[in-house]
Design a protein around this nucleic acid. Structure first.
Lengths: 333, 333
DNA sequence: TTGTAAGCGTTATCAT
DNA sequence: ATGATAACGCTTACAA
C-alpha cells in the first residue's frame, strides 16, 4: 500500500530509526545521511502515518468540536475560528453537530473519550450535563474547553462572551432613546447565554432606577416558535413594551414575523435589538441593530486554549471573556 | 492510562483474543464467557481504542469533507447531511474548510493522503486541480466522492445538482412572464455549477427560439464584488435586461445592493431569480424567488456513496444527479 | 471454543 | 551518530 518508514530506510540503506530521526527533526543525524533520507522520502513520496504516530505517542493530532447546530451562523464562525487555529498548529478537526439532541450529544462524548482526539471543544445543549461529560472525558485524559457554557466548580478552561454587558448596553440604548417599557425575549437559564443576557437586562434597569416588570420578561427555550409566542404575548399586554430585546438571532426570526403580522412600524411603533449578527439583519428593512459576538475569535481562542492545555496539563483553568460589539443600525431608534 | 483489552482479559481471566471476539461480536464465544467479559467491560469502563483498531485493520472509521467555505449556507447543509450519514454508520467526520485558498486545499489533500481517513468528500475550488488531487488520494488508497464538481474521464463517484435544469426553469419562468431580455450573472466555468447554470440559461433561450445576446451574459468569479460590477454593467446597457438570473446566493447580495442603489422596484422594473436558498431570501422585501438545491440530501448521498465504495472498491463509479427545487416567491413576476 | 503470537507503522530504549 | 529491538492496543492466522 502506502510507503512506510521501512521502505525509505531500505532505499537509503539505513535503519528505520534514522529515518524517524530525520522526519522528527532530531539533532543527531549527519548532514549527509539526512540529505539522502530526505531524498528518498521525496522520491518515494513518503508520508508518516498519523495513526501509527498517534498510537505510539498516545497523542492524537486532532481536536473535536461538539456544537448544537451548525446551521446557526454563530457556530459556523466559531468553527471556522477553531479550524484555522487547529490547521495552523497541524491539527485536524472532528466536527460533531449534535442538532440539539441530548442523547446524541452524550454518545459523541462517549465516542471521544476513547483516545481518538487530543482535546475537545464543548458547547453542549444543557449545562446540567456538563458534570458527567467532563468526567467521562477526563477519565480518558482528554482536556476540554467550554464555549459559551459555564458551571461553578468545574475544572475546565472556558471561553465566554460578555453576555451581560451586551444586553446591558442594549437596554441602556433603549433608555437613552426614551423607552421605559422594554420587553425581553430571553433564553433558558440552563446555559450561560440565556442566564447572562437576562442578567444584563435586569442590571441595566436597576442601575437606572427602573422597576423590573415581570410581565415584560419572557423566558423561552431559544426556538423560533417560542419567540413567536413570547412576542405575541408581549404585544398583547394592556401596556405593551415599546422596545424589545431578543436574546438570539434565531429567535429574532419569530419576533419579526409577529411584528410584521401586526403591521407595526420599526422603530416608530416597536424598537428592536437582537443578539447575534445574522447575515439578514443588515439586509431587511429596516436593518436590525445587533449585539454581535466575536464568534470567529472565540473559536480561535478556544482552540488555542486547548492546544496550550495539551502542553501544560496541570496549569490552573483559564477563563476568557470576550466582549460583544454593538452594531448600530436602524431598528432601535 | 485508559483501560485496555488486556485489563479486561486479566480481570476475567481469559485471553485478550476472547475479549476481542466479544467486542467484535464474533460468533464463537460461549454465552457464559461473553457475559463475564461484558461485565468486566462495564465495570472497567473499557472502550476500544479506535486508533489501534485503525492501525491494525488499516481502515479508519472516519471520513473527511473538504469544502471551500463553511460560512456559505449551502455547505452548512451539505455538511449536516454528511455528518448525519457518517454518524449513523459509526464514522466520525473531519472538516476542512479551505476558505477558497487553493494552496490550503492542496495541503489538506496531502495530509489526508496519509492513511488518516477512510474516504474523502471533495468540493474543491478549481476542477483543474482535481486530477492531481484524485491521484494523490488514490496513491494513498483513499476513495473520493466529488460534490458539485466534475471532470471528464475521472474515476470517482460524483454527486451533482441538475444545475442546467434549475436555470432552464428559471428562464422559462421569466419567458412565461413576458420577459425577452434576460440577463445572467454567471459563475466561472472551471467548475460545474458555473458551467452548467449558464448552459441551462442558453438552452432555454434556444429552445424558445430566442437569440442569445452576449451582452446579457456576465461571467464572474462567484464573488459578491464581481456580481455587483456585473449587475451594474447589465443595468447600464442601452437596452438593459428586464429580468436577471443570478447564479449563486452569495452573488445575489451584490446584485441586490446595486438594484437598491438604483432604486429599482422589484419585480416591476427588474425581476430576479437566484440560485441557492439563503435564509434572508424569504425575509427581505420582496421575498426572492430561488432555485433551492437539495444540499442536505447531497451531503447525505455523498457520505452514503463513499461508505458504499468502501465496501466495494472496484465497482464502477456512480454518478448521482439531484434535482433542485423552484421556490416561487415575489421577486420574479 | 479459546489461546498464542505475529504484525499494523510508528517512536523510544537501549546498545554500539 | 546509528542500529536492533521492544512497545503502543488492537486484529487475525494458526494452534490447541
Amino acid at each position: 500500500m502506502s510507503t512506510t518508514m521501512r521502505d525509505v530506510a531500505a532505499l537509503v540503506g539505513v535503519s528505520i530509526k534514522t529515518v524517524s530521526n530525520v522526519v522528527n527533526q532530531r539533532p543527531y543525524v549527519s548532514a549527509d545521511l539526512r540529505a539522502k533520507v530526505l531524498d528518498a522520502i521525496a522520491t518515494l513520496d513518503y508520508r508518516p502515518n498519523r495513526t501509527a504516530q498517534a498510537l505510539r505517542t498516545r497523542r492524537a493530532r486532532s481536536l473535536a468540536a461538539i456544537v448544537p447546530d451548525i446551521q446557526n451562523s454563530f457556530f459556523t464562525s466559531v468553527i471556522r475560528g477553531i479550524e484555522d487555529a487547529a490547521y495552523q498548529a497541524g491539527y485536524m478537526l472532528f466536527l460533531f453537530d449534535v442538532e440539539d439532541d441530548l442523547e446524541r450529544e452524550e454518545r459523541c462524548v462517549d465516542i471521544l473519550s476513547a483516545d481518538t482526539v487530543a482535546g475537545v471543544i464543548l458547547c453542549t445543549s444543557d449545562e446540567s450535563r456538563l458534570e458527567r461529560q467532563i468526567n467521562v472525558l477526563r477519565a480518558g485524559n482528554i482536556p476540554i474547553v467550554l464555549l459559551e457554557r459555564l458551571r461553578e466548580g468545574l475544572q475546565a478552561d472556558t471561553i465566554v462572551v460578555e453576555n451581560a454587558q451586551g444586553s446591558y448596553e442594549a437596554v441602556q440604548h433603549f433608555l437613552a432613546a426614551g423607552h421605559r417599557r422594554i420587553g425581553v425575549v430571553a433564553g433558558p437559564d440552563y446555559y450561560a447565554p440565556g442566564r447572562e443576557r437576562l442578567e444584563g437586562y435586569l442590571r441595566a434597569l436597576r442601575d437606572h432606577g427602573l422597576a423590573v416588570d415581570e410581565e415584560l420578561i419572557r423566558r423561552t427555550d431559544f426556538t423560533v416558535n417560542a419567540a413567536q409566542m413570547a412576542t405575541a404575548d408581549l404585544l398583547q399586554l394592556s401596556s405593551p413594551p415599546t422596545a424589545i430585546l431578543v436574546c438570539s438571532g434565531l429567535m429574532a426570526l419569530g419576533t419579526l414575523q409577529v411584528i410584521r403580522e401586526r403591521g407595526l412600524r420599526m422603530p416608530e411603533e416597536i424598537a428592536l435589538i437582537i443578539f447575534d449578527d445574522p447575515e439578514w439583519s443588515k439586509m431587511i428593512d429596516p436593518p436590525i441593530t445587533t449585539i454581535a459576538q466575536p464568534a470567529y475569535a472565540m473559536g480561535q481562542s478556544a482552540a488555542e486554549l486547548l492546544l496550550q492545555r495539551l502542553l501544560q496539563p496541570d496549569n490552573p483553568p483559564q477563563h476568557v471573556r470576550l466582549a460583544p460589539t454593538f452594531v448600530h443600525r436602524k431598528s432601535c431608534c
